[in-house]
Computed example of a mutant assay.
Amino acid sequence: MASDFSRALEGTGIRQVLFGILSIVDANPGVNQGTVGRMLGIQRANMVAPVNEMAERGWIDRQTDPSDRRAFILSLTAAGETMFARALTQIRAHEANVLSDFDSRDRQHLVALLARIEAREG
């Protein structure tokens, strides 16, 4: 699946972890970096490198959290919003291609099965 995801995002420079972070920050502007890590199951120390990478690429704005000076709050920059939108478009196109042989009933069944798997792991 990881290589499939990589092919879907070919040319963007985005890996799964970066897409996950962009997704959460897009949906929650001003979110605490630690919260993003917890949502993705990434340990605090392991969040530093990908956030630094995205800040260097100009995708993420990092500000000191006024309620906790040891923490950062994250928001997407205009470049980050553009990159996230591009990646999301490519992922949706890839998913449409992968599921092209599925009718709506098949898709509903797939979603139900995936939800059962997620419920077991959560």
Rank of each mutant, 00 (worst) to 15 (best):
Gln43Ile: 06
Gly37Gln: 00
Pro66Met: 06
Ala55Arg: 09
Arg70Ile: 05
Met39Gln: 13
Arg105Phe: 09
Asp26Ser: 13
Ile24Arg: 07
Gln108Gly: 13
Pro50Gly: 04
Leu9Lys: 04
Asn28Tyr: 12
Glu118Pro: 01
Trp59Asn: 00
Met47Trp: 00
Thr82Val: 07
Gly20Phe: 02
Glu10Asp: 13
Asp106Lys: 09
Gly30Ala: 09
Thr64Ala: 10
Gly122Ser: 14
Phe19Met: 15
Ala2Ile: 08
Ala8Pro: 03
Thr82Leu: 08
Gly30Leu: 10
Asp65Asn: 15
Val25Phe: 02
His94Gly: 03
Leu40Tyr: 06
Ala45Cys: 07
Met47Ser: 03
Ile42Cys: 03
Asp4Gly: 07
Val98Met: 09
Val25Tyr: 01
Ile91Lys: 02
Val31Tyr: 02
Thr12Cys: 07
Gly122Val: 08
Asp4Trp: 11
Ile117Met: 11
Val25Gln: 00
Met1Thr: 08
Ile117Ala: 11
Glu10Met: 12
Arg116His: 11
Pro29Thr: 07
Arg92Ala: 07
Arg120Cys: 08
His109Thr: 14
Glu81Lys: 10
Asn52Gln: 15
Ile91Val: 14
Glu121Gln: 13
Asp106Gly: 05
Asp101Ile: 07
Arg15Asp: 08
Asp68Cys: 05
Val31Ser: 04
Ser100Pro: 01
Leu88Trp: 04
Met54His: 02
Leu88Ser: 15
Ala49Phe: 12
Asp101Trp: 04
Pro66Val: 08
Met83Leu: 15
Ser100Tyr: 06
Arg86Pro: 00
Ile21His: 00
Gly122Lys: 12
Ala45Gln: 14
Pro50Gln: 06
Asp106Ser: 11
Ser67Tyr: 08
Val25Lys: 01
Glu10Pro: 01
Gly80Cys: 04
Gln108Ser: 13
Ala112Arg: 13
Asn32Pro: 03
Thr64Asp: 06
Phe19Asn: 04
Thr12Glu: 04
Arg86Thr: 09
Thr12Asp: 04
Gly58Cys: 05
Val48Gln: 10
Leu110Tyr: 10
Val48Glu: 09
Thr82Pro: 01
Arg62Cys: 13
Val25Trp: 00
Ala49Asn: 12
Ser23Asn: 15
Met39Lys: 14
Ala87Pro: 01
Val25Leu: 03
Glu95Thr: 10
Ala87Glu: 01
Met39Asn: 07
Arg105Pro: 00
Val98Thr: 10
Arg38Lys: 14
Arg44Met: 07
Glu118Phe: 09
Glu10Lys: 14
Asn97His: 11
Asp68Ser: 09
Ala115Ser: 15
Asn32Phe: 00
